[in-house]
């Protein structure tokens, strides 16, 4: 069952990345990126693009990428994991691109770096339980 689940996620990834509706994009995601495992790597190669190095955040034209540094919202690991899985406003969802371990690693990383000191780590199992539900087709 579990394998099937992952296979489904993988399929979905292909379909999703190849067809999300913005049109000028290439037909599929090409180019490999470093296979990311530890939290620092995931942060650097994905999250840093918006939240900036050291989680500084940034201010645009009346909107911002919130700072993750010294951010009291990070107190709840589940909150952070939920944002990463589902996205939030402009921030895309990462439920499809990151597995449970990767989500847990990046969540735990930002909660213990950038002047955050929340040491109660979230576990991959907890992330798994929070995963958005895929339709029957894929189960």
């Amino acid at each position: 069952m579990r394998n099937l689940y992952f296979y489904a996620v993988f399929l979905l990834f292909l379909v999703l990345t190849s067809t999300v509706t913005w049109a000028d994009s290439s037909g599929k995601i090409t180019g490999k990126t470093e296979s990311l495992s530890d939290g620092a790597d995931i942060y650097k190669h994905i999250c840093q693009s918006c939240h900036m190095s050291y989680g500084k955040g940034a201010e645009g034209a009346g909107a911002r990428f919130p700072a993750l540094a010294k951010n009291p919202k990070l107190q709840s690991g589940e909150y952070v994991a939920s944002v990463v899985l589902n996205g939030m406003g402009t921030m895309p969802w990462f439920a499809v691109t990151l597995n449970d371990q990767q989500v847990a690693n990046v969540v735990n990383y930002i909660r213990t770096h950038f002047d955050n000191h929340y040491t109660n780590a979230i576990k991959p199992d907890t992330v798994m339980m929070m995963r958005p539900h895929l339709t029957e087709e894929y189960e």
Partner: peptide, 23 residues
């Protein structure tokens, strides 16, 4: 298969939209 479990910070409606987004 784990039972889906929806949690904060989304309302059910918002969450459904995003989940559907995947599906």
């Amino acid at each position: 298969m784990p039972k889906p479990h929806h949690s904060l910070p989304f309302t059910r409606r918002q969450l459904l939209t995003r989940i559907g987004a995947l599906a």
